Computed example of a mutant assay.
Amino acid sequence: MHWKAIFFDLDGTLVETAPEIADAVNDTLRHFGWPTVAQSEVDRWIGHGTRELLIQALARVGARSVEEVRQGELLQEALPVFDQHYQQRCGTRSQLYPHVRDTLAQLREHDCRLAVVTNKEKRYTDTVLHTHQLADAFDLVVSGDTFPTKKPDPAGVLHGLQLWNVDKADALFVGDSSIDAATARQAGIAIWLLPYGYNMGQPVTACKPDRVIADFSEIC
Score class of each variant (00 low, 15 high):
His85Thr: 00
Lys208Ala: 15
Pro19Leu: 10
Val142His: 01
Leu79Gln: 12
Asp111Trp: 01
Arg60Thr: 05
Gln106Glu: 14
Trp192Glu: 03
Phe32Leu: 11
Asp11Arg: 02
Ala190Met: 07
Leu114Pro: 01
Leu107Pro: 00
Leu129Ile: 07
Ala57Gln: 03
Asp11Leu: 04
Phe147Asn: 09
Ile21Leu: 15
Cys90Gln: 05
Gly72Ile: 08
Gln84Arg: 15
Thr146Trp: 09
Gly201Pro: 04
Ala59Asp: 08
Gln162Tyr: 00
Asp176Met: 06
Val128Phe: 03
Tyr97Ser: 04
Arg211Leu: 13
Arg60Lys: 15
Pro195Asn: 09
Glu109Trp: 00
Asp153Gln: 04
Asp170Ala: 15
Leu114Phe: 04
Glu52Val: 09
Leu158Ile: 12
Val42Phe: 01
Arg108Gln: 15
Glu77Cys: 08
Ala171Glu: 10
Val166Glu: 09
Asn119Pro: 07
Glu20Arg: 03
Leu114Met: 14
Ala206Ile: 02
Gly156Tyr: 03
Gly175Glu: 07
Ala38Val: 03
Leu134Met: 14
Ser178Gln: 14
Val141Lys: 03
Val15Asp: 03
Thr127Asp: 02
Tyr86Thr: 07
Glu121Ala: 15
Trp3Lys: 13
Ser65Phe: 01
Phe216Glu: 05
Ala63Val: 03
Glu77Thr: 05
Phe82His: 04
Leu74Pro: 00
Leu163His: 14
Arg89Asn: 13
Thr127Tyr: 00
Gly72Glu: 09
Lys168Trp: 00
Arg70His: 10
Val42Arg: 01
Val212Ser: 07
Leu75Phe: 05
Gln186Pro: 00
Arg51Met: 08
Leu129Cys: 09
Val141Pro: 10
Leu54Glu: 02
Pro152Val: 10
Gly197Met: 06
Ala18Pro: 06
Asp215His: 14
Val25Leu: 14
Thr92Trp: 01
Gly201His: 04
Tyr124Asn: 09
Glu109Asn: 05
Thr146Cys: 11
Trp45Ser: 12
Phe8Gln: 07
Pro98Cys: 11
Asp167Phe: 01
Val128Asn: 05
Asn199Leu: 10
Asp43Cys: 11
Asp83Leu: 10
Leu54Thr: 06
Pro209Arg: 09
Ile55Gln: 03
Leu10Ala: 11
Leu79Cys: 02
Pro148Lys: 09
Thr17Trp: 03
Asn26Thr: 08
Pro19His: 06
Ala135His: 13
Glu218Thr: 11
Arg89Lys: 14
Arg60Val: 03
Ile213Lys: 04
Ala187Ser: 10
Thr28Gln: 08
Pro195Leu: 11
Leu194Glu: 01
Trp45Gln: 07
Ala38Ile: 00
Phe173Gly: 04
Cys112Arg: 01
Gln71Phe: 02
Asp102Thr: 13
Ser40Asn: 12
Lys122Leu: 13
Tyr198Leu: 10
Asp153Pro: 05
Arg60Leu: 12
Ile189Asp: 01
Gln95Val: 08
Glu16Cys: 12
Asp11Lys: 06
Val204Trp: 07
Arg89Gln: 14
Leu163Gln: 15
His48Ile: 00
Asp43Asn: 14
Gly144Met: 10
Cys90Met: 06
Val128Glu: 03
Lys4Trp: 02
Val212Cys: 13
Phe8Lys: 06
Thr36Gly: 14
Asp180Pro: 13
Leu75Val: 12
Val142Asp: 05
Cys220Ser: 13
Gly47Ile: 07
Ser178Glu: 14
Arg30Val: 14
Leu29His: 04
Asp102Asn: 11
Leu172Asp: 01
